[in-house]
C-alpha cells in the first residue's frame, strides 16, 4: 500500500479508510493526527464501513469513545481531544476488549502510542483552501512495515 496519498474529496478520504480496514487485525492501534478538519472522522467512517460495523460513526469528542460492533472486528473509536491523560484505554471503561478490537484514536499523537507495542500513525493534513487533503502512513513496528509493503 502506498505511504503517501492525495485525497481530492471527502469521498477519497473515506475510500482510503475502507482500504486500510482491509489490512486491520484484532489488537491493532491506529493513531490519527492532523489539524481541525483534516479528515480524521471521515477516515474513521471509511474504516468503519470497511469493517462493516454498525454506525453511525460520528465524532466521539464529547463522549471520548464509542464502540461499534457487528462487523468483521469491533471498532473502538477514541477521541483524545478533551482527554487530559490516558494511561490505558481500559480507563475509558469501554464495554470492549482492545485485544479483540481495532482501536482508532483521533488527536492521540504523543498521548497513546504506549497503548500497544506497534501502531500505525496516519498523518492527515489539509491545504489552505478547497476540499483536498493529504494522508501519510507512518508504520511503527515490524508488522506494520510488512503490511504496508505487502
Amino acid at each position: 500500500m502506498r505511504r503517501e496519498h492525495t485525497l481530492p474529496t471527502p469521498a477519497d478520504t473515506h475510500a482510503l479508510g475502507v482500504e486500510l480496514a482491509g489490512l486491520l487485525a484484532a489488537g491493532d492501534l491506529l493513531v490519527l493526527s492532523g489539524p481541525l478538519g483534516a479528515g480524521k472522522t471521515a477516515l474513521t467512517q471509511g474504516i468503519g464501513a470497511g469493517l462493516g460495523v454498525r454506525g453511525p460513526v460520528t465524532s466521539p469528542t464529547f463522549v471520548l469513545a464509542r464502540v461499534h460492533r457487528d462487523g468483521r472486528l469491533p471498532l473502538v473509536h477514541v477521541d483524545a481531544y478533551r482527554l487530559g491523560g490516558l494511561a490505558d484505554v481500559e480507563d475509558l471503561d469501554l464495554d470492549a476488549s482492545t485485544a479483540e478490537s481495532v482501536t482508532v484514536v483521533e488527536w492521540g499523537h504523543g498521548l497513546v502510542e504506549q497503548l500497544a507495542d506497534e501502531h500505525l500513525l496516519v498523518e492527515l493534513d489539509r491545504g489552505d483552501d478547497g476540499e483536498a487533503r493529504t494522508a501519510r502512513l507512518v508504520p511503527h513496528g515490524p508488522s506494520w512495515e510488512r503490511r504496508l509493503a505487502g
Binding site: R82, G84, L86, L92
Partner: peptide, 13 residues
Amino acid sequence: HERFGGVVPEIAS
C-alpha cells in the same frame, strides 16, 4: 478536569 487540561474519565467517575 481543567486542572488536567481535559477530561480524565477516572476523575469524572
